[in-house]
């Protein structure tokens, strides 16, 4: 099993939101709408949206990083021209969201949302700052490990993925039920790798993380 279960009581919000019945398998409909998906045009996404450190009066506070990788399908083929959206807390662990009550400072030079289309080889690349860990109310003294939220489309609606990317060696992994909801070693797929080749001298640390989308039933057949 790659994905976490719906019901994972250590993550308290799953208890009233997890469906009680397993989803109905849909295996035998080659005409299903879900086997197709939206297509994105180059003109619909501004290339500047991939730089989360830009667009404000000044530079955001925090550790500047580059996050890059490829979007691949289940057989390892790159997925070009697909939409990748990210959002994250600032370096102090605060989201630019009105319902975030964490008493850490907002950064007037950082919103924390970006998007891009993958290139012909399925590559995406964002410039941002390393997000901070933040507390949440799931259990006493609960803290989320630093993470960047990712939303990826792929070529079929069946491949649609929303997930979170984590940073290597975070001491909060052992205590985070959202990270730990993914079974066993599979959860390591959520952790990016530091990469000196992505790192730019005198400017930004580089991290690499590939996103592998699930297969469609037609491909598995």
């Amino acid at each position: 099993m790659t994905h976490p279960p719906y019901l994972y009581p250590d993550y308290a919000s799953t208890v009233l939101r997890a469906p009680s019945r397993p989803p109905l398998p849909m295996k035998d409909d080659p005409e299903a709408a879900e086997l197709t998906g939206p297509v994105f045009g180059r003109g619909e996404v501004d290339p500047l949206d991939a730089d989360l450190t830009a667009g404000h009066a000044g530079e955001p506070l925090g550790e500047r990083i580059i996050v890059t990788g490829r979007v691949l399908d289940a057989s390892g083929r790159p997925v070009p021209d697909t939409l990748v959206e990210i959002w994250q807390a600032n370096s102090a662990g605060r989201y630019a969201h009105q319902r975030d009550r964490h008493p850490a400072p907002l950064d007037p030079n950082f919103t924390g949302a970006g998007r891009c289309l993958t290139d012909g080889e399925g590559r995406y690349r964002f410039v941002t700052i390393k997000p901070g860990a933040y507390p949440w109310r799931n259990h006493p003294n609960a803290w989320r490990p630093a993470h960047i939220h990712f939303s990826v489309f792929g070529t079929a609606f069946t491949q649609r993925l929303v997930t979170q990317m984590y940073f290597p060696g975070d001491p909060l992994f052992a205590f985070d039920p959202i990270f730990r909801s993914v079974p066993g070693p599979t959860r390591e797929r959520l952790v990016c790798a530091f990469d000196l080749d992505v790192t730019e001298p005198e400017w930004a640390l580089g991290y690499r993380w590939d996103v592998v989308l699930g297969g469609t039933p037609m491909e598995d057949a």
């Binding site: 993550y11 979170q164 959202i178 959520l190």
Partner: peptide
Amino acid sequence: MTTPSQTVGPFYGFALP
């Protein structure tokens, strides 16, 4: 080696809409 899903969380509102 499919990438696992994680929750969208409560704070997508300034990014995805």
